[in-house]
Design a protein around this nucleic acid. Structure first.
Lengths: 235, 235
DNA sequence: CGGGCGAGGATTGTATAAACTTTCGCCTGT
DNA sequence: ACAGGCGAAAGTTTATACAATCCTCGCCCG
């Protein structure tokens, strides 16, 4: 690399380059651009983000800890491929945690938050209308994250982030039909219950929402796929 | 301690040098040898374990992700100092998760597991009799981890490992009395319920156990302490 | 013709060195 | 004497070089 414009603190908001790598790869996985089993070579990613292997390695280790990347010793990093057993565990955990999260969200509700939720619903509807499956998948997960942020419980939020990321992989692997109508109405119903501060209804709707997602899965055998790699990462 | 009795190879990755560092520091924190706010210099730890800073850094990043170490940019790594708000979140999460874990443990119970639990209870009693506060604290946490391993749910296990480690710091910071009698009898009661496959009793006892631990805490103000560093790490 | 085996290439694991940031002591000016 | 700033030292962050390991592919032997 001959002349790379290396000014000091060149990017104003990119205070942490590791985070940018991590979030870039995470987004690619959550939008189903990176498929389970894909190899994530260190040089490859480093080239894309203009970073050295040290930083890429740090980001990959964080993703491994979040459960969406597997690191095999002396082999490299791969997008995780959850087994059906993993899938059942993830959704059981979500059924346990998310109703409680909604409870706390209702305790912490403010008009400002209602606005953010409604705005998010609008984005979801628009993406669905536009037929943008990738944005739909991403926004669908972000809805749950938003509710968790609203609850103000950082521990639940951290746990849920992991669960959502894994869920995205699970849905990609085990979905029966590619019906992209994955519950925007459910989300609207949950928001309505939050707005009315009706905890019981909110919990019930969250639970049935999760049940429905899991019901659409076919958790029988692990799918053996080999899939193409990622120049799809828009750095 | 003359010879270290650390020969259990329960973790298959224990041969990894990063894991050895991570587990060594974790053990030091869980046994209250490393106190909240203590600076964990990279050179310092690397010297102790005969490893280069690269490996130390990897281990510290993992610990940061587990929430028991804070990494401040350009400043270094420090043992985490949970706030009272953190403490409330941790114990709420434990009250949510652990009763469910016990349920699953009962579903997966075998005579072999009962043996392991009873043996653990014996170790706890012995340490308490011996007045070994450090071993007591560590074993008390390990009991909960053991039940989670028994349940066979890797996700709950991962979550609980984090919660236990944070709990240890919380107890150290906010305990009212230094009463080391922290519920070996409770643990025995839980084991008895598991043995009888009585889910309702097991859940109830786990819940009251956690309540009692939290009731002994004084969650008012964050304690502002500066504490000595660690040549206490017996590598 | 099929299967085992070994050399070469590629990729990861580890260590070391360079660059930047913060900290703290010390010196000067008022 | 005290406040403020300059400078060196310590420590962290990043990059690069080196070592170890694994995979591939061609070759040789049965």
């Amino acid at each position: 690399m001959a002349a790379k414009p290396r000014r000091k603190s060149d990017a104003p908001d990119a205070s942490d380059r590791v985070s940018r790598i991590r979030e870039g790869v995470t987004a690619a996985i959550l939008e189903h651009r990176l498929l389970p089993g894909t190899k994530l070579g260190e040089d490859e990613i480093g080239e894309i983000y203009g970073a050295s292997r040290t930083l890429v390695r740090t980001a990959l280790q964080q993703l491994a800890h979040e459960g969406i990347v597997n690191i095999e010793k002396n082999r490299g990093a791969f997008v995780a491929r959850p087994t059906p057993a993993d899938a059942r565990e993830v959704f059981e955990a979500r059924r346990l945690i998310e109703p409680t999260i909604v409870d706390h969200a209702i305790d912490a509700v403010t008009p400002d938050w209602i606005d953010r939720l409604q705005q998010h619903l609008a984005e979801e509807r628009e993406a669905e209308l536009r037929g943008d499956a990738r944005a739909s998948v991403r926004l669908s997960g972000e809805f749950h994250r938003l509710v968790a942020e609203m609850s103000g419980h950082s521990i639940y939020l951290g746990f849920l982030k992991e669960l959502i990321a894994r869920s995205s992989l699970i849905i990609l692997l085990y979905r029966r039909h590619d019906t992209p109508a994955c519950g925007t109405d459910h989300h609207a119903g949950i928001v309505a219950a939050i707005r009315k501060r009706d905890k019981q209804a909110a919990r019930a709707q969250m639970l049935s929402h999760l049940d429905e997602i899991e019901a659409e899965l076919f958790l029988k055998d692990p799918v053996p796929d080999e899939l193409r790699l990622a120049d799809v990462l828009g750095a």
